[in-house]
Design a protein around this nucleic acid. Structure first.
Length: 642
RNA sequence: GCGCCCGUAGCUCAGUUGGAUAGAGCGUCUGGCUACGAACCAGAAGGUCGGCAGUUCGAAUCUGUCCGGGCGCACCA
């Protein structure tokens, strides 16, 4: 609603300026700093001032006088040194919202692929992985809210070094057979992903003290690649079990995927061989004959010596495989996976996994028009190499459409380490934050964190709703805990390093998920109470005329709340453009804040004037819908009560 | 050495791509429960936007430079 008026305003002013001054100006519409300045501000006169060599104030005055009426706009005035401030026709605006005139869903025609999570399947997920998944999942929800077709991929590196290391741990350190590992996986008393977390830290430490043990890793990697024998069998069991654990962890956060492309299939279906041929044919890489990279296939341009893609022993590097995978995502590889169903989500959607054996399934993935890779900022160099690979092959457009959706790492604050009993060196204690390290087993496990949050929320719920059943309390507490966690991870912009602090994350007050949930719960409570007292929810469209809306919206308070609530789509659209889920989180918080204020100031159910009461109830209902929708985009559920 | 990111209230962070008097949460202090449940609301204090120079009507935002911190730059992934 807001957005469509904004567009009308922009094009009307642009057309007028074109006709009157012969200048084509892209007219920007801003939000005034203070609400009493109106709903929209246009700084066009400042831009025109340069070209026309006239005072901005004079130009602005001319514009106000000469532009005819714009639909939906009640008044236009000059403010400050030359701002054009606009005030909307409140009655008409309210009537349009009441009538349910909603913005046309206008996503792009092509499919967008978002790849996120991508955790090595060799140990439990930690908070860094949660930031990745929450950012990716929220961005997916944002795109879908705008009507965009989106495919969610979670890449599984099930044949890599990290899986190999855990296998080495089982085989060489613990002397376990594949069958024994399988028994461990099946043992309900063992958290297998937690077990591997510790084992991975142990084997990493062991390599440090016994460098010769790295030969075990090489041997294991070969076995995995060949796909036969005890070690390969074990790798399979381990990675499959950990993938299931990761999916379960993510499901607690309401994060779901469409397909799991796996490294093993990329290997078996020879994706690399196809990509290698392309790269050679189109001369995107060359065989180095001298220097330190002699004997390697190298991609030029990124640094003086270039980036090695194929090693002198003929094996391909990780980036090389990533280029092949990226080509597949755009449908440029000339090869495809086979797929089989992996699991079915509660809403009936199927999660597919790649396979190398031909199957009947008609599932098809990839062929995206635009690809977002949610990967942390430390890998930006490698993402640049992948994009350079596409360019080298002549796929300039696809390189443009490959977006490294980067974010900074989650580290631990020194205080948090102390709280968790993690010993720190003298040096680390002075740092602003300490980096999480899987190799050192240093970090906060995702499931542990969620458990702590749920326990804390449960205390609060139990103290307020002792009458509710234990099961119900648990459900509400879980929704609150997850809301708190997702909001916490989303409220920072992507390039801020999060110095994770347990006490801060456990907070349910102030700018938090529960604050947002609470506002929506309060709105619901009003409507529920009304019905409990035997009153029906009024037929808003029948009872509220345009005049009535205009009358009620004279109140600055009411108008501001309604205006804020009507901007949900506008906020999401801007956030998508900026690539910042944090902007949606901020909007949700501000909306909740506006409502809490309104709620406190106006006792709606006590209102005696019928028109006003109906109006206030409508506002409440409208607010509730908008906030629930926005919370949903953030992946935050609204509990039945709090 | 080269590249990227960061530096804004005591702390943690926003700041609509160059606009109006720089904002929020936490913390501190003051006040508010008649259930539309206070996981809330109202108010106060708190700033040389790291420093300097430049670009222009106008800079937290752009450029240069310096200071301080972080992360990358493998025939690892």
């Amino acid at each position: 609603m807001f957005h469509s008026i904004e567009k009308k305003v922009s094009s009307a002013i642009r057309a007028h300026i074109q006709a009157r001054y012969g200048v084509d100006l892209s007219v920007v519409v801003e939000q005034p700093k203070q609400s009493d300045l109106g709903e929209m501000a246009v700084p066009a006169a400042f831009q025109l001032a340069k070209q026309l060599r006239q005072a901005p104030k004079k130009i602005a005055a001319e514009l106000v006088d000469e532009i005819g009426p714009i639909e939906g706009v009640a008044r236009m005035e000059v403010a400050g040194n030359g701002y054009l401030n606009l005030r909307l026709d409140r009655g008409a605006y309210g009537a349009a919202l009441l009538g349910g005139v909603e913005a046309e869903a206008g996503g792009g025609a092509g499919k967008v692929i978002v790849e996120h999570t991508n955790i090595n399947p060799n140990k439990a997920a930690h908070i860094g992985h949660l930031r990745n998944a929450t950012l990716g999942d929220t961005f997916v929800r944002m795109l879908r809210a705008l009507g965009q077709r989106v495919e969610v991929q979670n890449y599984i590196d099930n044949t890599g070094v990290q899986v190999a290391d855990v296998v080495v741990g089982f085989h060489y350190l613990e002397k376990k057979t594949a069958a024994e590992v399988q028994a461990l996986i099946a043992d309900p008393a063992v958290r297998f992903d937690f077990y591997c977390w510790d084992l991975y830290a142990r084997i990493s430490a062991y390599y440090g003290e016994n460098p010769e043990a790295r030969a075990w890793r090489a041997e294991t990697l070969h076995a995995i690649e060949a796909g036969v024998g005890e070690l390969a069998e074990m790798a399979h069991r381990v990675s499959d079990a950990i993938v299931e654990a990761h999916l379960a962890t993510m499901l607690r956060l309401d994060v779901e995927y469409d397909v799991l492309p796996r490294e093993s299939e990329i290997l078996h279906l020879q994706f690399w061989a196809s990509a290698f041929e392309l790269l050679k044919q189109r001369k995107a890489i060359y065989l180095e004959i001298e220097g330190k990279n002699a004997g390697c296939w190298v991609m030029p341009g990124l640094s003086e010596e270039g980036k090695v893609i194929v090693r002198s022993d003929g094996t391909v590097t990780y980036v090389g495989k990533d280029i092949a995978y990226q080509l597949w995502k755009f449908g440029l590889l000339g090869k495809d996976f086979y797929y089989r169903p992996f699991l079915t989500y509660a809403d009936g959607r199927t999660l597919w996994v790649t396979t190398d054996t031909p199957s009947e399934s008609s599932a098809r993935f990839g062929r995206g028009e635009r690809v977002y890779n949610v990967i942390d900022a430390r890998q930006s160099y490698l993402q640049d190499v992948v994009a350079a690979g596409l360019r080298g092959l002549g796929y300039e457009q696809q390189a443009e459409q490959s977006v490294h959706f980067s974010y900074e790492m989650v580290a631990l604050s020194p205080r948090c380490c102390a709280d968790l009993g993690i010993p720190l060196s003298e040096e680390d204690r002075k740092r602003p934050y300490v980096e999480v390290s899987g190799r050192k087993g240093l970090g906060v496990k995702a499931d542990d964190l969620m458990d702590s949050l749920i326990a804390k929320a449960l205390e609060e719920v139990a103290s307020r709703h002792a009458e509710a059943s234990a099961e119900e309390q648990k459900r509400v507490a879980t929704q609150i805990a997850i809301g708190a966690l997702r909001y916490f991870l989303l409220k920072f912009t992507r390039n801020a390093v999060i110095a994770f602090d347990l006490q801060e994350a456990l907070s349910f007050e102030g700018e938090t998920g529960p604050y947002v949930q609470y506002a929506a719960v309060r709105a619901r409570n009003i409507l529920r109470k009304l019905e409990e007292r035997g009153e029906a929810i009024p037929d808003f469209r029948a009872e509220l005329s345009g005049e009535a809306l205009g009358r009620q919206l004279q109140s600055e308070d009411f108008w501001q709340v309604l205006l804020a609530a009507s901007k949900a789509d506008w906020a999401v659209e801007r956030a998508v453009t900026a690539g910042e889920p944090a902007h949606v989180a901020k909007y949700a918080f501000q909306l909740a804040q506006a409502f809490n204020n309104f709620y406190h100031q106006y006792p709606i159910l006590q209102e005696q004037d019928r028109e006003k009461k109906v109006f206030l109830l409508w506002m409440t209902d409208f607010f509730r819908r908008q906030l629930e929708r926005t919370a949903g985009i953030l992946g935050i559920r609204v509990p039945d009560y709090m």
